[in-house]
């Protein structure tokens, strides 16, 4: 099994995958507790729109994915705070709008080929050294901010109004959290793919919640589940030449079902 690490691209894929597993699961805990699960789905499609623009304009699609996901995150928060418009409908509209625009842009630009496919479902072959640097740098910043404000995010997730009246800057932190999530999703798009990343964010936490333990333990369990899924998913992807995002998500699902069975009462 270890011979797969003889390939440079596999080493890169694993480094990227491990960083993403850490980021997705830790941010995912807050996303789930905050009931933001659908936002992840929407942002991943906005990131895909960014990829499409990057592919056609021929610059690193990772950068444009980050920009577009951030923009979408801010738009969602703006709509929510300015018009109290925060419904599934708004998110669904943004999601399908982004996806449709991405497809149109790519076909007009003549780039409708395998490379878009790899951004939809993830590909371990595609991770370049440049990507690793981008993922590591943005990933480190995101993780730092998540940990720095984890107590505040936790309080807000539990009771936003009491958090606010106790002096926590709820509006700022909400914006910060969706921005971090947007960045993490955009970073993950290469390895896991835009259609599947929100599954890697959400499902490890939902599985961890089945254990009914305190906050710290929940985060740790979800982290372990994400790491295990990414590791086994990428291994399967390598040996059977399957898209890595899809194998990773199936591994996550398998562990989720396992945790349901273990914790059945």
């Amino acid at each position: 099994m270890l011979e797969m690490f003889e390939y440079d691209f596999m080493q890169r894929a694993f480094i990227a995958g491990i960083i993403i597993a850490i980021l997705a699961s830790i941010s995912g805990t807050f996303v789930v507790l905050r009931r933001y699960s659908l936002i992840g789905e929407t942002l991943s499609h906005s990131a895909l729109l960014g990829v499409a623009v990057g592919l056609v304009a021929e610059f690193n699609p990772l950068w444009s994915a980050v920009l577009f996901a951030l923009f979408a995150a801010w738009l969602i928060e703006y709509l929510r705070s300015a018009f109290s418009l925060y419904s599934d409908a708004v998110l669904a509209i943004l999601l399908s709008g982004s996806l449709a625009s991405a497809v149109i842009i790519v076909s007009l630009g003549g780039a409708f080929n395998n490379s878009l496919f790899s951004y939809l479902f993830g590909s371990i072959l595609a991770v370049s050294s440049d990507d690793i640097v981008v993922i590591a740098v943005f990933g480190a910043i995101s993780l730092f901010l998540l940990l720095l404000f984890s107590k505040e995010f936790y309080f807000i997730a539990y009771d936003e109004e009491v958090a606010k009246t106790s002096g926590i800057k709820v509006d700022f932190l909400n914006l910060l959290l969706v921005s971090i999530v947007a960045i993490i999703i955009a970073l993950s798009i290469r390895v896991v793919g835009s259609l599947l990343i929100s599954a890697l964010m959400i499902i490890p936490t939902i599985a961890a919640l089945q254990f009914r333990v305190g906050f710290l333990k929940t985060v740790l369990i979800s982290l372990c589940i994400a790491l295990l899924s990414v590791f086994s998913g990428m291994t399967l992807s390598f040996h059977f030449s399957l898209p890595s995002g899809a194998t990773i998500v199936l591994c996550v699902l398998f562990i989720f079902i396992l945790s349901l069975v273990i914790n059945r009462r």
Partner: peptide, 18 residues
């Protein structure tokens, strides 16, 4: 199903002053 012990919740009372 919120993952919080009683202590986790009461600790929140200190969050904004840390």
């Amino acid at each position: 199903s919120f993952p919080a012990t009683v202590l986790d919740i009461v600790n929140m009372g200190r969050t904004s002053q840390r």
